[in-house]
């Protein structure tokens, strides 16, 4: 997979960096499925087919959806009559368009961040790529922000696994 401009830029700064072994170099995509409204914009615009409309629906997306949204209203109604937790995803008949879980294949993802940029529900974040400085595979590079196309997330909230990394500091 050829490097994106961003990838080149990063390598330019950090010549000994090695990208992750997933197919693309680029942002890490974090999907917040409970905020998804199922519009399919990410799938429509995804250049690599990493995001696509699935054939199933994770019922939790209704139950966890924010109150005040349409899914939230449906979820709240479902909650009121539910007897147990949903066992697993359910199959979706073809003409139901928005109640679908978007399938996200990290292997195909280029990290371009288009989905995050365009998501009308702000349900996707694109975080700066994590690169290894040394030979070991554990990503330790701190970031100063959300990467290519995040929304107004606070920096720390956007990088949940950076235990101990202060902003700007490079850990060898």
């Amino acid at each position: 997979m050829p490097l994106t401009n961003r990838g080149h830029e990063i390598l330019g700064r950090l010549p000994t960096a090695r990208p992750r072994t997933s197919s693309g170099i680029g942002c890490e995509i974090v999907r917040h499925e409970e905020l998804c409204v199922g519009c399919g914009t990410c799938a429509k615009n995804c250049p690599s087919g990493a995001s696509r409309r699935g054939d199933t629906f994770d019922v939790w997306q209704l139950l966890d959806a924010p109150a005040g949204s349409r899914r939230g209203a449906l979820g709240a109604a479902l909650r009121r009559i539910a007897r147990r937790e949903p066992a697993g995803p359910i199959e979706v008949p073809p003409r139901v368009t928005v109640y679908r879980t978007i399938v996200y294949d990290a292997e195909l993802c280029l990290g371009c961040g288009t989905c995050a940029r365009n998501c009308p529900a702000d349900a996707i974040e694109a975080l700066a790529p994590k690169l290894s400085m040394t030979g070991d595979a554990t990503p330790t590079l701190p970031t100063t922000g959300g990467g290519a196309a995040t929304s107004s997330a606070t920096p720390n909230a956007a990088a949940p696994t950076l235990a101990g990394a202060a902003s700007g500091e490079v850990t060898p």
């Binding site: 019922v59 009559i81 949903p86 073809p94 139901v96």
Partner: peptide, 16 residues
């Protein structure tokens, strides 16, 4: 028809 089928599956998944 499809939406009714969908709701049936929703109900079933939560034990209704």
């Amino acid at each position: 028809v499809d939406r009714v089928a969908f709701v049936q599956r929703l109900l079933e998944s939560v034990g209704v």
